[in-house]
Amino acid sequence: MDHITDKERLLLIEQAVAGDKKALETLVLGVQDLVFNLSLRMLGTFPDAEDASQDILVKVITHLSSFRGESSFSTWVFRIAVNHLKKYRKHMFAKLPLSFEFYGDDIRNGKVDDVPDLTQDVEKSVLAEELKMSCTNVMLQCLDVESRCIFILGAMFKVDSRIAGDILGLTPEAYRQRLSRIRKRMAMFLNEYCGECGGGACHCINRVNYAIQNHRISPAHLDFTSAKPISSRKMAEVKEAMEAIDDLSEEFSFYKAYESPEVLKEAIRAFLAGTAFSVVRNA
Rank of each mutant, 00 (worst) to 15 (best):
H3T: 07
R9V: 04
L11S: 11
A16R: 03
A18M: 06
K21C: 03
E25A: 06
T26W: 03
L27F: 01
L27D: 02
L29G: 01
G30Q: 07
G30I: 04
Q32Y: 11
Q32H: 14
L34I: 02
N37H: 07
S39F: 10
L40A: 14
R41W: 01
M42H: 10
G44V: 04
T45Y: 09
D48I: 06
D48R: 09
A52G: 06
A52L: 08
Q54C: 13
Q54H: 13
V60T: 02
T62M: 06
H63Q: 14
H63Y: 07
F67L: 02
R68P: 00
R68S: 10
G69C: 08
E70R: 14
W76N: 01
I80R: 04
I80C: 04
H84M: 04
K86I: 09
K87Q: 14
K87A: 14
K90F: 13
H91S: 08
H91V: 03
M92A: 11
F93I: 08
F93C: 09
F93M: 07
P97Q: 08
P97S: 09
S99L: 13
D105K: 11
D114S: 12
D114V: 00
D114L: 10
V115K: 01
L118M: 14
L118H: 05
Q120S: 05
D121W: 11
V122E: 13
M139A: 12
L140Y: 04
D144R: 11
V145T: 08
E146L: 13
S147Y: 05
R148D: 00
I150T: 12
I152W: 10
M156Q: 10
M156G: 01
F157S: 00
F157C: 02
K158I: 03
I163G: 01
A164E: 02
L170F: 15
L170P: 03
L170I: 05
R181N: 11
M186W: 02
L190A: 14
G195N: 05
G195H: 07
G195K: 03
G198K: 05
G199T: 08
A201I: 12
H203K: 15
V208W: 04
Y210C: 08
I212V: 11
Q213P: 00
N214P: 02
P219C: 04
P219N: 05
A220G: 13
A227G: 06
K228F: 08
P229L: 06
S231L: 15
S232E: 14
R233Q: 10
A236Q: 12
K239W: 09
I245E: 12
D246S: 12
D247G: 06
E251W: 15
F252I: 02
F254Y: 15
K256S: 13
K256G: 05
Y258D: 01
E259Y: 14
A270W: 02
L272M: 14
G274R: 07
G274S: 11
A276Y: 06
R281C: 01
